[in-house]
Design a binder for these strands. Sequence first.
DNA 1: CCGAATTTGTTTTGTTGCCCAGCAAAACTA
DNA 2: TAGTTTTGCTGGGCAACAAAACAAATTCGG
Lengths: 409, 409
Amino acid sequence: MERSPTPRSVRQGRTSEELRRHNLSAILGALHEGGSRSRSELTRNTGLNRSTIATLVADLSQRGMVVEGPPKERSGPGRPSPEVHLSDVGPVVLAIDIGVDSIGLAVVGLGGQMRRHERVDLAPSRRKPEQVVRVIAELGRSLLPAPPEQRLAGIGVAVVGVARRRDGLVHFAPNLGWRDEPLADRLRAALETDVSIQVGNDADLGAIAEHRHGAGVGFANLVFLHGEVGVGAGVILDGRPIRGADGYFGEVGHVTVNPEGRPCQCGSRGCLETEIGELALLRAAGVEPARVGREAIDEVLDRAAAGDEAALRALREVGRWLGIGLSSIVNIFNPDVIVLGGFLARIHPHVEGQIGSTVGKRALPASRAGVQIVPSRLGVDATLLGAAELALAPVLADPTSVPTAVEAA
Amino acid sequence: MERSPTPRSVRQGRTSEELRRHNLSAILGALHEGGSRSRSELTRNTGLNRSTIATLVADLSQRGMVVEGPPKERSGPGRPSPEVHLSDVGPVVLAIDIGVDSIGLAVVGLGGQMRRHERVDLAPSRRKPEQVVRVIAELGRSLLPAPPEQRLAGIGVAVVGVARRRDGLVHFAPNLGWRDEPLADRLRAALETDVSIQVGNDADLGAIAEHRHGAGVGFANLVFLHGEVGVGAGVILDGRPIRGADGYFGEVGHVTVNPEGRPCQCGSRGCLETEIGELALLRAAGVEPARVGREAIDEVLDRAAAGDEAALRALREVGRWLGIGLSSIVNIFNPDVIVLGGFLARIHPHVEGQIGSTVGKRALPASRAGVQIVPSRLGVDATLLGAAELALAPVLADPTSVPTAVEAA
DNA sequence: CCGAATTTGTTTTGTTGCCCAGCAAAACTA
DNA sequence: TAGTTTTGCTGGGCAACAAAACAAATTCGG
């Protein structure tokens, strides 16, 4: 176990060097999360003096991370302030999303810009770690240009399972059939790289992506409920992703919602995952569960749109349990917003009304009053972008770790 | 609703002045949480240069917050380093704990030292806000010496109910029969003071106290489960207290544990509070629930110690539901430690075994493996000390807000 | 079309805060 | 008692942000 009770409190002091790092990071982070803005806006945002902003922006510009462009049109009286943009030749990361039925890869720059992008289906027979890693290595080589052209700052991986952040070991991924896989090590060998490889849970990373670039922008407290075959949740509190002592915080997929429900693979019965996962919908709609995947879900939705009674009944059933599960989430986490991801985003239009009424009845009035329940805005790319955020985090936290143009030459 | 989605991300820049504040705060915070230590230890803890530590300690000393004493005996070779202690004539706060059947007051200094301390019973007939505030004002005046002698830096209040941090309005306190009480305003008027008055929920504040000074010292992820008539939880994640969008985070008292259980005052049935609260124990043991309070619980525990079958059965029953509730807490929050407070701390020895076996069966193996479940170490004073922490927070965050001896003169 | 008002970039000059080096002091060791 | 180790103390230096003064670029009013 990686528990570390510190007997004496250790508080870090800060030097002026760290002060500079913090301020560079503040500027870069503002641009990353909120997009381009003028130098004068940066001055107002950060509260720093305009001469300081000038030197900081010049520093970031020298490092090839931002560029200054012409000012916005018609901005009022006074001398116009140049617009600061994230450079599109800045450092990039490779983002990888290992899902149950597909693998996604993308080259992502600061600001969450996807430069290049690829997704391939993953047949159930090809889910062995060796095979998955081989596919990733091939795709990765074709996506990534030669080193000097683009500066690769790191690699981030989202995986449907529980991963150990420290060393990228995938502890347990039931839907892939993995157990204790040293994923980061395998990828490092296959991609022949020495950059840092960070691995995280797909729901945790989806939460980060929706919070920074998607449906949850501007909300401090967010729960991202990601449903495919399994159900996981990622939680952001006070703007910070929460992981718990071992990284299992927010494991709501196995909260009991239906004490008389079906047995779950976790050993219990009537877990949220069992009642609202893809399999539950297919089963209730009378579709062969073995056909699980995008097309099977599409079929149910099409049939419901055409008025098919069985499909409509199945959606109502899933909507009911989803509402109950969401009520618990509202009661426990008191979020500003809940973002539904994966296949839950796709059924959202069909179950919206039912969710609203169930939460209205079951959740504590005080907590439910302010919460919004919305579908993902990033769709299938949410987890991919989250993986990119994971890899970009060190660059954002310390922009000085990227060499300046002068240093690189 | 107090939701504030910020359309554009605002990141604070830092000036060198704030750097100094941060470093002063780091030193004071280390002493506050971890106790006295030598200057050389502070140097190692903070990573700052020893000349910097010298000026910082001198600064805090001038402000009357720390004093330097003789070095520790036999510390090894080299010039001995003077020990830095928190001053016992430094700023103090008034801590107030409004419980269901008693009111506690204390004058608390840095480090959580209780200087003076008083607790009085609160008869059910005297729970009206006006009466409570009158009692507090009387006790407060007798406890607090005249202003110049002790510097009163703030007032912190713990209350059994939901409070709004911003203005100290008690939204809802069912066990006191309060609703929308402007508690902070009433206290400000009654105590005739203009210092800041902060109000918080008792479980949230108990969590902070146990984390900094009690059974949870050194653990980054802690859940404090506080049970009396009602049941509430306070949660610390990554060392930071969590409150949620409106302050209702971790409302586990109304999580359903027994779908066939008794109706709860919240409208649902079989809530955790209904199954493990004081009333549940008394009822199960055949004691008149109306007698609820310290003596009634003592009676049940005494009878159990004497081998009384009904009392033992009642404790087993409560232990079972407590185990189920704790399993959910382990699954959802994945904490390092769960601290049982209030009457749950007192029954802990009797239900320890049962809790262990229930959690062993019901919680996810990965999360339950590392968690410790322990009784409160601060006892009835946990919430009182938590209230003190609330009031001390501004001083710890910015020691320069306290005037220096020179400035005061 | 021109000048006043406004706002921001730029440059120079503080001011603050931390680090470093060298020396002195105070312990332990043998 | 001399050597070693560790720490406090002092003065000098560096890095980072702020403030002030001036220049530049725009809007607005006539």
